[in-house]
């Protein structure tokens, strides 16, 4: 925490999880099948369309890709846009269709 400026009465500080763990908004959980994922098969940076289209930036452009399930809101854009259909949306426990 840096020193407070006396001229500013209300100032916000950046923090991850400003709205709490937004992962609990989710009805469906994205699950990756790495054997279908293009960068994982090719073993080099490619595709990463899930990273590109994720509105919350919780998917990493790494090999293998990983999803931060603490903050993933479960919109399902990644599963919809994946050209290899490597991401499936699976119901969270206790939540039905």
């Amino acid at each position: 925490m840096t020193k407070k400026d006396d001229n500013i009465s209300a100032m916000c500080r950046p923090a991850i999880g400003e709205a709490g763990k937004t992962g609990d908004w989710r009805d469906k959980r994205p699950t990756i099948d790495h054997n279908k994922c293009i960068p994982f098969i090719k073993k080099k940076p490619a595709c990463f369309l899930c990273w590109l289209y994720c509105p919350d930036g919780v998917i990493t452009a790494t090999i293998p890709i990983s999803i931060d399930l603490d903050y993933c809101k479960g919109c399902g854009i990644c599963a919809e846009e994946c050209p290899a259909k490597a991401i499936a949306m699976i119901n969270e426990e206790g939540k039905d269709d």
Partner: peptide, 28 residues
């Protein structure tokens, strides 16, 4: 995939866990 994707700045300035709705076009 578009080659230009690799030119995109990798740093994130919008942190996860914000109040935008799930699947928000603005957030993207």
């Amino acid at each position: 995939m578009p080659e230009s994707l690799f030119k995109v700045n990798i740093e994130e300035y919008m942190l996860p866990g914000n109040r935008a709705c799930s699947g928000c076009g603005l957030s993207l």
